[in-house]
Write a protein that binds this DNA or RNA. Structure first.
Lengths: 245, 245
DNA sequence: GCTAATTGTGACACTTTTGTGAAGTTGATG
DNA sequence: CATCAACTTCACAAAAGTGTCACAATTAGC
């Protein structure tokens, strides 16, 4: 379970904000702290570099335009040095300029926000990136309850017992595990699991859901995958639904 | 990809354009409809205010300079009134004046466009904001007192205990939570929750209200949903004191 | 208090959505 | 070319959600 919903960071680490404009820094710090994150500031690129190497913050928010060392330069250096390979970075770009955006993303930033931005947007982006990367960090043991996935091997196991899944079933399961407690329509699943422009009967999803359920059923409590009538499906392992009639 | 790419709104809602210049309205409407959005216009700030409260459009495009009620004033009022509002707003500013921009953003606008603008820019901005806020929906837990809704999971819980609701019950509850302390006639509820042109006995609403109440009853003090005789129903979590004929 | 109107309640039937098994299709592999 | 595995489609069964009704309970007006 990721503590992301409440805003707290899993590792108890902090978010590093690298920007030389005090006003922006202030605003970001306030927003993020209100949202429950720990924040540290740095106005100096080189210094930030040190902090990153030493502390390994959970996330870096980086201004693209800075006097000493540009944000772009910094991300490039970080990605190159590789020690911080999977450090999530959000870039602050000056304005909605295509060029900046592209550069930022190419140099390894995970997301970008163009100034000016709303506090809500900031927090949303931060959460989104953390959610993504938290899920990705532990590339090997992706586990929830009795269920564990091995992403590199594309296999799943329940209580240590490997279960056999077709490729599609596996991807479906992985997608669900990465997006727990959310309802996805059949269309969305076709988009994101099947992979885009497919002309496939939406009912096909049902069939694969069924297979997945069948594979998951023997051990764990049944209702890992719940049907949301008229809407789609939802994966939530700790199901604690109150029954009444 | 999601339906956003094609321009369609997830919720089937529409974009509200508030501007008093017919030429601008026309241009915006044309552009957006070409891009596949549903659009509605309003030249009057106060009227727009009503539409927003009642319909909850997916996005509001707001002229900052308007005779009756300035765009700025309107956004301020909106943000202040409805604590649960998370309505994306794009401001149209007269020209690129720093002041306007800052005011717009401080008052909660998510983006601004300065006139004159190109159709392409307009559509791009609209898409950007919608994409952002679509992601936002999941992160904002909709909660009131002991009750909390998770819109992305389409679930409700009281004091952490999940309660089971049918699709219609859930939608009804969500609608009520989004529009607290307002009385809705059965007809209005049929329009908004059932989704428009349905030929259904109005008494049906009663039945579903009852089911909802039943699901909500066990824990929280009863009268979350109050009956307003001769008028309809009202959701108001805390108080239940003031009675009026 | 009485009557008329309005709302609450439970049961039941109807409709839509989903589950299920098997047959058909596709594409890769030897 | 045959075979196999994975995926899709289809038809039918099952389930869940929803609408309607008859009747009980409540409220308002007189």
């Amino acid at each position: 379970m990721f503590a992301v919903k409440s805003g707290a960071l899993v590792s108890g680490g902090y978010i590093l904000v690298v920007d030389d404009e005090p006003a922006i820094c202030d605003m970001i710090q306030t927003c993020l702290e209100l949202a429950g994150f720990k924040v540290r500031l740095s106005a100096n690129g080189a210094l930030a570099h040190q902090m990153i190497i030493n502390d390994r913050p959970d996330l870096v928010i980086l201004d693209w335009m800075m006097p000493m060392m540009s944000g772009l330069e910094l991300t490039r250096r970080l990605k190159r040095e590789d020690a911080t390979a999977d450090l999530p970075v959000i870039m602050l770009t000056a304005r909605t300029e295509e060029d900046d955006r592209i550069n930022g993303l190419e140099s390894g930033a995970d997301d970008y926000i163009s100034k000016p931005f709303s506090p809500r947007e900031l927090v949303a982006r931060v959460r989104a990136v953390l959610r993504r990367t938290n899920a990705l960090v532990d590339d090997v043991p992706l586990t929830v309850g009795q269920l564990s996935l091995d992403r590199s091997a594309q296999t799943a196991a329940i209580a240590g017992q490997a279960i056999s899944l077709g490729p599609l079933e596996y991807r479906l399961l992985e997608f669900f595990v990465l997006h727990q407690n959310r309802v996805f329509s059949r269309g969305q699943l076709l988009d994101r699991v099947w992979g885009g422009n497919v002309y496939v009967d939406e009912r096909t999803v049902d069939v694969h859901i069924r297979r997945l359920r069948k594979a998951l059923a023997p051990e764990q409590q049944d209702e890992m995958i719940q049907t949301v009538r008229g809407a789609g499906y939802r994966f939530s392992p700790v199901d604690s639904s109150a029954k009444e009639s």
